[in-house]
Design a protein around this nucleic acid. Structure first.
Lengths: 97, 97
DNA sequence: ACTATTTTAGCCAATATTTGTCAAGACAAT
DNA sequence: ATTGTCTTGACAAATATTGGCTAAAATAGT
């Protein structure tokens, strides 16, 4: 499944005419892995987001938000009660839990 | 960390004067695991929710919602951008993604 | 069509996470 | 002190995730 995060990364990378293998090299990863991340086949590890943000001159918070949204999406996708559950979480967060 | 799901289970169970070991037996699990689930140390497997709901004469949808909320909470807890991320997810769900 | 480059898919090994089992500990009631 | 309930931690087994390698597929240039 495609991810918001992956799509954004690809957008940022291609806009800068950076090749997969170039980004991969800078991230010290295999090209195929970055490819999978951009296509949503794999998740980037959270700790790597700041590194990636820097390499792409991107807003770290934006990327982290998208990444988080993807993780949440993973949990609630195909769930009829997703909306209900999300509301519950929002309430709890606001209560400072 | 305590979970909504676990607290609700315990509430339901104790109201019916059911012991941990009795519930555990009916679920064919070790008592210690149910204990941990109620206290939020472990997660119940999703497939077991209907079984548990039946054993406790509880509303399956309610339990599933709480369970989902806990899973989401797990992802976004301690995240300053949690709220932002949740909004993003809600939007995407409504768009039918 | 041929070549070079970039991207994707499949498989394997290493690592990390989750799960169940068991034994021991804490706690309350008697 | 004994009994019954619940909690906790340690450990192994099962499962999932991760990254690397390689070959195939797609794309672009000539």
């Amino acid at each position: 499944m495609a991810t918001q995060f992956g799509e954004r990364i690809r957008e940022l990378r291609t806009k800068q005419n950076m090749l997969l293998r170039q980004l991969a090299s800078k991230m010290d990863m295999d090209t195929s892995i970055i490819s999978k991340i951009e296509r949503g086949d794999r998740q980037l590890k959270k700790e790597q987001i700041p590194v990636l943000a820097k390499l792409l001159s991107a807003n770290e918070q934006e990327l982290l938000t998208l990444w988080l949204a993807d993780q949440v999406m993973d949990v609630v996708k195909d769930e009829p009660l997703a909306d209900e559950a999300l509301k519950t979480v929002s309430k709890n967060i606001k209560k400072g839990m």
